[in-house]
Amino acid sequence: MLTYITRRFLQGIAVLLAVSMICFFIFQFMGDPVVRMAGLYATFEEQAEVRRVFGLDRPIHERYVRFVWNALQGNFGKSYVSRVPALNLILERFPATFELAVCALCIAFTSGLGLGVLVSLKPYALRNRFIMALSLGGISLPTFLTGILLIMIFSVFWNILPSFGRGDAVQLGFWRTGLLTQDGLKHLILPSLTLASYQLAVLLRLTRAGMREVLTQEYIKTAWAKGLPPRIVVLKHALRNVMIPVVTITGLQFGELLAFSIVTETIYQWPGMGNLLLTSIYENDQPVIVTYIMLAAAIIITLNMVVDILYALLNPKIRYD
């Protein structure tokens, strides 16, 4: 297990290096940030000075090596746009995104799993067909449309839920949480539903497919024949065997929710990392973009590793050595 983790860790570092290298490569085509940084009315000479001050006159490979060297010491450079450290700028936004992702994942996981099991027991009942049809909608509707529809219904027509922002948030040390106030929770409902809708549908369909397969197997028939109560048969014998793919997908999804909730955050003006990334791309704020991409890659790599370890716990037959 230990050698496995070490190997994955080293692979992770290689991925991070590759990701940051690709970012630097792409930056060459993203336009020259100096024009904006020097100001609208700067002369060519003044632009050249700004370029020197920020080290942008150096060749790209030299800048990359310097970036990696500084990053190793925890310094990801300063944002061109707000002139404060890029990492702080992102971490400041992390709690908002994390809370949104966790809420969305809780909704997706519990409802997806629950409905999936329910549907698999009587696949042809009218109610279950209806649920399946809805889940198809969840998969095929793009997030921005789901978001705008929810805002239209709950904020504009009924005016019962807020359409944007995080509401009242409470500062606990470095963590700013919206989970402790009623207003904050109200603001969470629509965005987390929007973010969860796709994942919920995926988990539902995955659970249903797995359950239907497992339920036809011999040992389940034996379990029914033994006269075990349905609860034990369904939850203990059947569901446990379906859990492996479900947990994998959930784990991977969590990383995605965390790193790429950009669309949902933009629609709801959620003050999270995704929103920041989008603004930074518009403004060509290269230090923030590369730091964000690296952070996202690091999160996804870590979550993959956690999922692998969870496997071993869920199914003792899996060995990594």
């Binding site: 705008i148 805002i151 239209m152 904020s155 504009v156 005016n159 807020p162 359409s163 944007f164 922002g165 933009t266 629609i267 709801y268 003006q269 603004t279």
Partner: peptide, 18 residues
């Protein structure tokens, strides 16, 4: 001041009185 860059969200915030 609430900066809302997405125009339809800005519109919804105004209509709903936020």
């Amino acid at each position: 001041i609430r900066p809302i860059t997405e125009s339809s969200t800005r519109f919804a915030a105004l209509v709903s009185g936020q």
